[in-house]
Amino acid sequence: MASFTELETWKQSRKIRKLISDLARGFPANEKFRLTDQIIRSSRSIGNNLAEGHGRFHYQDNIRFCIMARGSLTETLDHLIIALDENIITEEVLQSFQPEYESCLKLINGYIQYLKSKKLSE
């Protein structure tokens, strides 16, 4: 694979990053340096880690960054749950994010398994 931008996992993380960015614009001003900043950073970290891992020489390094991307994805979901609990978003908004989250999670897990199989065949 020539570029990380060809990875389906990265493409899905880009979609999530855009969804979160659009959603966060509607968060209250008093959350700017709290929840808004945190959720934007965690959503960006998903793709950042996938890109950084792709640029590493060894499969194990790439796997480690994929695991961090998976953690950032889960952190993003937790921030949305906090937004729900704080009445910043509705249950419907959270539920509409769920398929995107699950898709990205499956893609990351599949990519990790692929990398593990490549590592074993070295």
Rank of each mutant, 00 (worst) to 15 (best):
K106F: 12
N30K: 12
L105S: 14
T5F: 08
T74H: 07
C66D: 10
L7P: 06
R14K: 15
L115V: 13
D22Y: 06
E122H: 11
E100K: 10
Q38F: 07
L19P: 00
I63V: 11
D85C: 06
Q113D: 15
F65Y: 14
D78H: 14
L105E: 12
L107V: 06
F57W: 14
E31L: 03
Q95P: 04
L94Q: 03
L80C: 03
E102W: 07
Y111Q: 09
E102I: 11
H58T: 09
Q98S: 06
M1V: 12
A51H: 01
H79P: 05
L23A: 00
Q12S: 15
S43P: 02
Y114G: 07
E91Q: 12
Y101H: 12
I88F: 01
F97V: 07
F4K: 11
Q38E: 08
I40F: 05
S96F: 04
V93H: 04
I40R: 08
R64E: 09
Q95V: 03
I81R: 13
R64L: 14
S45V: 02
N48D: 13
G71I: 04
H79K: 09
I16Q: 00
S96D: 14
S117F: 09
F65N: 07
E8K: 15
R14Q: 15
P99C: 08
R70H: 07
K116P: 08
I81W: 06
T90W: 05
S117T: 14
L73S: 02
R56H: 08
F97W: 03
F57V: 14
I88A: 02
S117H: 11
L50P: 02
E31C: 05
R34G: 11
F4L: 12
L84T: 05
N30Y: 08
A69D: 02
N109I: 11
C104P: 01
A69H: 01
F65W: 04
M1L: 12
K18Y: 10
Q12E: 13
L7W: 03
S13M: 07
R17V: 06
Y59K: 05
Q12Y: 10
I88H: 02
G110N: 14
K119E: 15
I40M: 08
T9R: 07
Y101M: 09
I20N: 03
K119C: 10
F27R: 04
D22N: 09
L107Y: 01
Q60S: 10
L94N: 00
E6I: 06
Q98E: 11
K11D: 07
A83V: 02
A2P: 09
D78M: 12
Q38I: 04
Q12T: 10
K32I: 06
Y111S: 05
Q113E: 15
I39R: 00
A2M: 08
K119L: 15
Q60N: 08
I20T: 02
C104K: 06
G55D: 10
L84D: 02
